[in-house]
Design a protein around this nucleic acid. Structure first.
Lengths: 200, 200
DNA sequence: CAACTTTCACTTTCCGTAACTTGTAACTAA
DNA sequence: TTAGTTACAAGTTACGGAAAGTGAAAGTTG
């Protein structure tokens, strides 16, 4: 039993929780391993037994949020309703979650932007997962699609303006209804295009 | 006749040229009114007779480049070939110009990003002009379109990942051929979608 | 009198230095 | 022997004062 009374997993989760709270209250730029460690009651060096480096702690913080989002979006993708409705709801909800997150907690969103900018595994893995889900939904929506994976990639490209973390932040000044309307217009136009030529 | 021997317009253009060169050689962040003025051979305060403030000089620098791009793109839009070919070439060339600019002169591109981030008139005006041109090309490409202006806006949204100054810079690591292929795929999917339902 | 310069107040940046932070290795305690 | 701590080097940030920059107004020059 470790001297802290916490298992390795418990200590990791405590560190993530504390780091997350400190980012929210003091800003992304002021996150210190020394502060997190002090709040747990260990030396800062002890954290390196659990996280490879500071960036790994940040990854873990962001991953916590991405996991929550993934679960919510998986529920939608696998829930009731037509494939096309689920696909549309998936995209709308994904944007809504992101905008809400960026608005409610801009510093945690900045952490996400930083991790995303550096193409860290937690984010690229998340994007791969999302894209795979979109491909599945596309195949269900347009069964004649020759290459659903390619179509998913093109669709993601067309919707990057709604989903890219930095653009999400930059476009928060545009109201939710307008954003959602444009998202639906763009998505529907893409789907009609994919349907019109499923071999492309 | 002014003491510098330059007309007001000549002095402005000299200032823009010098500022542009200094941004390129020393970086956007190190542009100083005092340096530009010294290079012209006037006091820094004399520049304020020609530019409202430093931001206005920056606007003029960026506008210089935007005007060049606009001319090139207008040539394409009004040149030979089918409307659809012109439309596609317009988008491909626009992206090519931006990527080339960002690659060849990253500091001037940063100036553009800053001016764009602040939603300065020179950039919003440029975007309006581009969108109007796109609407014209769309009407020629799909004459049944109920609202070409709206369709142009939706199309711009779908292609923002290729055109947004900061994303242009971030995606330079992706090779030109891949970028162009994805751009054409996305554009063609959108056009098929617009054609499939021109009232949307 | 137009086109400058000089001067000024305020703001921003630079710079040297001290303090802090990160990550590692040796050491210690339970 | 695991789970820490301490000490350290190298790197980064904070800070205060000096220097420089911005923009406006008064003054000067051709």
């Amino acid at each position: 039993m470790p001297r802290t009374g916490l298992s390795a997993e418990e200590l990791k989760q405590t560190a993530v929780r504390i780091a997350s709270a400190r980012i929210t209250s003091q800003g992304y730029a002021r996150l210190r391993m020394t502060d997190v460690a002090a709040e747990i009651g260990v030396s800062h060096a002890a954290l390196y037994a659990h996280f490879r480096d500071k960036a790994a702690l940040l990854d873990a913080v962001v991953d916590c949020w991405l996991i929550t989002a993934r679960h919510r979006l998986k529920e939608i993708a696998e829930g009731p309703g037509s494939a096309e409705d689920r696909l549309e709801t998936f995209f709308v909800e994904r944007v809504r979650l992101k905008r809400e997150g960026a608005r409610r907690d801009p510093e945690l969103h900045e952490a996400y932007c930083q991790v995303s900018d550096r193409l860290r595994d937690v984010v690229t893995g998340h994007l791969d997962d999302m894209q795979a889900t979109i491909a599945v939904l596309l195949r269900q929506t347009i069964p004649t699609l020759a290459d659903p994976a390619h179509a998913a990639a093109v669709l993601q490209t067309a919707l990057i303006g709604f989903n890219h973390p930095r653009l999400v932040r930059d476009f928060l000044h545009i109201d939710d209804a307008t954003t959602e309307r444009r998202l639906r217009d763009t998505l529907r136009t893409m789907l009609r295009g994919l349907r019109a030529d499923p071999t492309a």
